[in-house]
Amino acid sequence: MNSSPLESIPVGREKIRLLESKSILHRRALLKMIYTARAGHTGGSLSCVDILNVLYNHVMNITPENFSELNRDHYIHSKGHSVEALYAVLADKGFFPFEALDSVETYGSYFIGHPTRRVPGIEQNTGALGHGLSFAVGMALAAKMNGRNDRIFTIMGDGELAEGSIWEASASAANYRLDNLVAIVDRNTLQISGRTENVMAMEPLDEKFSAFGFAVREVDGNSISDLIGVFENLPFEEGKPNLILARTIKGKGISFIEDQVQWHHHVPTDAEFDTAMLELDEAEKALGD
């Protein structure tokens, strides 16, 4: 499970297919988690899980073996409510057994509804939005101070971008020329109350982040091959922090969950869960051999 030879497979059709199949596994695991716990953030976990998959299984130098070391890549889950996606990817990576996830959100469990450092593989406690980027700036700056080029990755929600602290962090990332910082926006266009553009208009996001000094790239954040492609070009520009606008679909992968505002924290019923699992079986078959 954890000693997958994925890293050693050259990028190509086979690797993409393997990662796509992992995404399906992650989706199954996270839905089961939410279904079992009767709680969770379904839509946002499904929208960012492909990015996490590519980061952990292709891009970042983070393993259960090197996790206790400082000199490696780092990941901060700024949109902490989508913890189920992170739990699924970390379990698959071998940080803890999948069975541990049966206890998510139960009495006395360390697996709560947001990331905490009590869980192996998690680097920082998050859940209040708008904190991850500042923390990542601090890590990226410290790595540079130590003469290291460890890369710091973080995923933020698009609704989260309304927090002023994001823009304070952005200014400091550019000021300190942190080209080892990779900020990713899960641009699923939804938050709790509706469309992000109706709740608080933030477009044009690319121009805003560019103006703050980021090198900005856009990508289909649910396409494994597109994601692999964009991360290949890091850093996008020397001396500039990296910003990836990942166009995603909230609830991606399950037809009746996709792009539905109420699925932010809706929990599947028995019937919905069964249908979702069937859809994932179909998706698995469609991958072919």
């Binding site: 709560i112 509804g113 905490t116």
Partner: peptide, 8 residues
């Protein structure tokens, strides 16, 4: 917020 934890 129960098991959503300390941030909440």
């Amino acid at each position: 917020y129960g098991s959503l934890g300390s941030t909440h």
